[in-house]
Write a protein that binds this DNA or RNA. Structure first.
Length: 627
DNA sequence: TTAGGGTTAG
């Protein structure tokens, strides 16, 4: 009733008789009709005639024409329209200026949007929000925040649209919290759009406690909010939390969309949960998965070591972008199929999109892990010439790894010295690792000092340095390093291996026999040791770095976490599926040999993933030459 | 006429 009364009140009781109004120019009527009916080219042509005659049409027609320019992606015509509306040096009216800004933003022409904005004599909240949103999307955070302050100085209050946009411009946890305070002051803290932005920004700062609190305080949630919180945990590395929330979301009655599934898959990838990833794949098949979801699925199979499934998916994908190709190339390389990775890169050069710096990282990784020194040099030197990619520190790191593995420590050192920028900690760590393998304690000491200069609490450097001294039986020096480690309160992260059996995850720590089936595992391990010893396995006590007796060393090797996991895997294996084991530290040389022989004696496939790569053991051979 | 979520490496 109230709406009806309003209409009546606005009705033109004293309308001017038609005959007394000047009749509009016929061209204006034609122009209005063309705009209203979407006749784009004709409307633009008519606009040129209006210009010649010095006629100005009505705002609704111009607004329709702006929408048509956007729909047709017609940048030049849009500019023409802007010029037409600004003719005579006057700014278009507020509503039209806002629309023009929106049009330029959609065309990615923020500078031109800014010109419209600056020329406006009056601006409303939409004008300010459009400009702020354009700036945040361009990463011009400071300018966006400056505009937020200016608009308030001019007496315009930001609304839910403004805050949803400007939150991306918070670059520190502190600025996020102060912006949250501002949102509360404006009474907008319960808006779902604002909250999902808040949660998203929290995840960027890895401040998920704060994000989770905001999420929990919400009375009503929509799918995007669930996606923000699940995505936040998945990207922040807390896969367990992401999966838990994914389950809760489904219980709350929401249906996962492509975005949700992408995050859930990322969580599985992070935790190397192949079985759960496969279950999600079944879920994905209900949709027509888009490129991003397929890429996430591809990455999950690669990172979980199921290359057959990854290969098949890659072939089946209806569309592949640079991420798909890079994922597959790195996946092959990480799973020990470097030659296939390089073959795929060669076909990408012919059939695929232009490689980017990440693609080249995968290629160099493939070379370094297969010891393909010359290929590596070739690809590295071709980066600039062929692909216009400037090598970054990661690419240099791969080259140092490649030279280091090949035992060319001096070349690696020279390579570092020739770098145009300061070597970072990763490069020094890589050199240090190579020094350990090739037992160059002098260079190792130098590299370790560089690492500790950049990161005084780097436990890896202490351990590697101590290992080098222990390898060369310099026990006093080894002990000295361990003592400085203790002084700095740096502790060695314990080796941890885990495997999925059904829906259970079994975790083992070196020497820890608290597993409920510990007795069975011990027996199985003895059996496996007897069989592998008969095949020539000799415990490689070089990998035990304490100054202890031979028997003690062997005892310590026997219960390395990956050996315990292998034993449990063999006990529960039907032989049909590979045994998949994950490890938090790099696999040691002794366990590498042991796994290879167990795979042969038991006729099984064993796949061990360490933080750097996968090791596939089958028929007594391995995808990796050594640890 | 203005707003929020998902993919490769590290």
């Amino acid at each position: 009733m109230r709406a009806f009364a309003k209409c009546v009140a606005r009705a033109p009781y004293h309308a001017v008789p038609h005959s007394s109004l000047p009749s509009p120019h016929p061209l204006l009527q034609t122009f209005a009709g063309l705009c209203r009916h979407g006749a784009f080219s004709e409307a633009i042509a008519a606009m040129a005639s209006l210009e010649v005659l010095g006629l100005v049409a009505d705002s609704i027609s111009y607004s329709d024409l702006i929408k048509l320019c956007v729909r047709h992606g017609a940048v030049e015509q849009g500019r023409l329209l802007h010029r037409h509306l600004s003719s005579g040096g006057r700014a278009p009216e507020l509503f039209l200026s806002n629309s023009l800004m929106g049009m330029f933003v959609r065309f990615g022409l923020a500078d031109e949007a800014r010109k419209v904005f600056d020329a406006m004599p009056v601006r409303n909240v939409v004008s300010w929000t459009t400009m702020i949103s354009a700036l945040t999307n361009l990463g011009q955070a400071e300018e966006a925040l400056r505009l937020l302050i200016s608009m308030q100085r001019e007496g315009i209050a930001p609304n839910r649209y403004t805050f949803s946009s400007v939150l991306k411009a918070c670059l520190t946890s502190a600025s996020l919290r102060s912006m949250h305070g501002c949102i509360v002051k404006h009474g907008l803290e319960s808006d779902v759009f604002v909250r999902s932005s808040l949660i998203d920004v929290c995840s960027k700062f890895l401040d998920m406690d704060y994000g989770y609190r905001i999420f929990n305080e919400m009375a009503t949630r929509d799918l995007v909010v669930w996606n923000s919180i699940i995505g936040g945990f998945a990207q922040g590395g807390d896969g367990y939390m992401a999966i838990t929330l994914f389950t809760q979301m489904k219980k709350a009655g929401f249906f996962a969309n492509q975005s949700t599934l992408t995050s859930a898959l990322r969580a599985c990838t992070g935790m190397v949960l192949l079985e759960m990833g496969r279950q999600l794949h079944v879920h994905v098949l209900k949709y027509n998965p888009d490129l991003i979801l397929n890429n996430a699925l591809l990455d999950m199979y690669c990172k979980c070591g199921d290359l057959e499934e990854a290969d098949e998916l890659f072939d089946r994908m209806p569309e592949r972008d640079v991420i798909s190709w890079s994922t597959m190339i790195s996946g092959l390389a990480q799973n020990g199929r470097s030659t296939d990775a390089l073959k795929l890169f060669e076909s990408m050069k012919v059939l695929g999109p232009k490689p980017n710096h990440i693609t080249l990282l995968g290629v160099l990784f493939a070379c370094s892990h297969a010891g393909l020194l010359e290929d590596g040099r070739h690809y590295f030197s071709s980066m600039r010439q062929l692909f216009d990619i400037e090598p970054g520190s990661e690419h240099y790191g791969c080259m140092v790894d490649l030279l280091g593995r090949a035992g060319k420590l001096e070349d690696a050192m020279k390579f570092i010295a020739d770098m145009s920028f300061e070597p970072d900690i990763v490069i020094w760590r890589t050199l240090l690792g190579a020094c350990r393998v090739h037992k160059d304690s002098n260079l190792a000491a130098f590299a370790a000092k560089q690492v500790l200069r950049l990161e005084p609490e780097d436990e890896g450097a202490y351990i590697l340095l101590s290992n080098i001294y222990a390898d060369s039986h310099q026990w006093t020096e080894a002990e000295q390093v361990r003592r400085s480690m203790r002084d700095c309160r740096v502790k060695k992260e314990p080796g941890r291996s885990w495997l999925e059996l059904g829906k259970q995850i079994h975790v083992f720590i070196a020497g820890d026999m608290s597993h409920p089936q510990a007795d069975g595992i011990k027996k199985e391990l003895s059996k496996l040791l007897t069989r592998t010893t008969a095949m020539g396995y000799v415990p490689d006590t070089d990998f035990v770095l304490h100054d202890v007796g031979k028997e003690q060393k062997e005892e310590s090797l026997r219960y390395h976490s990956e050996k315990l996991a292998i034993a449990l895997g063999v006990m529960n294996s039907t032989g049909a599926k590979p045994i998949r084991i994950m490890k938090n530290l790099r696999i040691c040389g002794d366990c590498h040999t042991f796994a290879k022989l167990v795979a042969k004696s038991e006729s099984m496939t064993i796949i061990i993933r360490d933080p750097v790569r996968f090791h596939h053991f089958k028929d007594g051979s391995s995808s990796s030459p050594s640890a």
